[in-house]
Design a protein around this nucleic acid. Structure first.
Lengths: 153, 153
DNA sequence: TATTGTTATACTCTATAACTATA
DNA sequence: TATAGTTATAGAGTATAACAATA
């Protein structure tokens, strides 16, 4: 029988992370970090980070959407959007127009350039999403999405 | 036939987020935010945030683990751990002992207090995870975990 | 009185580079 | 020469409070 190393001097060769891996939040967080990393690398050519992409895409599919509506949809705070909207406008990707029925609000719209960029970015986003989920079948991917939505909706 | 509002003056009542909802990364991120929010609220009594909890739990299940091993397991950078380890030691939840075979490294261990806290915190974490996934069956929860791991491992 | 958009501010989390001591 | 742990620093992301204009 070989001498056992005392517990106080023990060293670890193989890390046991099985408990953490049993937590949904741990797994969603780790998966998010991997996908966001790939996202940042592939979307850098468009100068878009995740939230900026989400904003541009939502405006594309909802012309006339307001900042307030973007905030509630994406679950972010109004101050986050201010600089982002200004920057997207300065890049001539979006325009602000007076809201037809609310003098306080502004309706957001894409420019022709913005529409083109949004379309390209969405193709890239879908491509890299497929790469990130390459080990999943189409059915598994669909299942994953449904299960995740049951958590946050 | 009712007069249609011109596109330039259009307003949006119902936001169409269907494209974003078709992206895995969007769904993992939204789910993570919901779970982390619940985590922060329920774990505040222990004074533990997500990464601190992960560190404490990993030390509990891997006595003698080093900072470097925590970094590679959790995919975080060494500087993040320095203050955290100091704080956990000051709270007398962990102790640092010289590594038996590497003079540069320190083996991390839980104190009796740390073991007790880690055990309680793990029960709370498991409970709130179950609450967050209340709309999922046990099978669905298991499936979700397996699918997520296929993305980040 | 409530809401939209805005400003100012601070806090958390994280990434990078450089250092020391040991290997 | 490489690695473990540390320090200093900067950046990104987010949260809160308070304000003007409008509802």
């Amino acid at each position: 029988m070989p001498a056992r190393t005392p517990a106080t001097d023990s060293t670890i060769d193989q890390i046991d992370a099985s408990y953490l891996e049993s937590l949904v939040g741990y797994n969603t967080r780790r998966a998010t970090l991997v996908i966001v990393d790939a996202f940042l690398r592939h979307m850098a050519v468009y100068g878009l980070k995740p939230v900026e992409f989400s904003v541009l895409s939502l405006i594309a599919h909802n012309p006339g959407i307001t900042s307030r509506q973007l905030c509630t949809t994406l679950n972010i705070q109004p101050p986050i959007l201010v600089g982002m909207i200004n920057q997207l406008e300065k890049r001539e990707l979006i325009t602000r127009r007076p809201h037809p029925r609310d003098g306080r609000a502004m309706g957001l719209h894409l420019t022709a350039t913005g529409r083109k960029l949004a379309k390209q970015a969405e193709v890239t986003a879908s491509d890299l999403e497929e790469a990130a989920t390459a080990r999943l079948s189409a059915t598994e991917r669909k299942t994953l999405m449904q299960l995740l939505r049951k958590i946050y909706i």
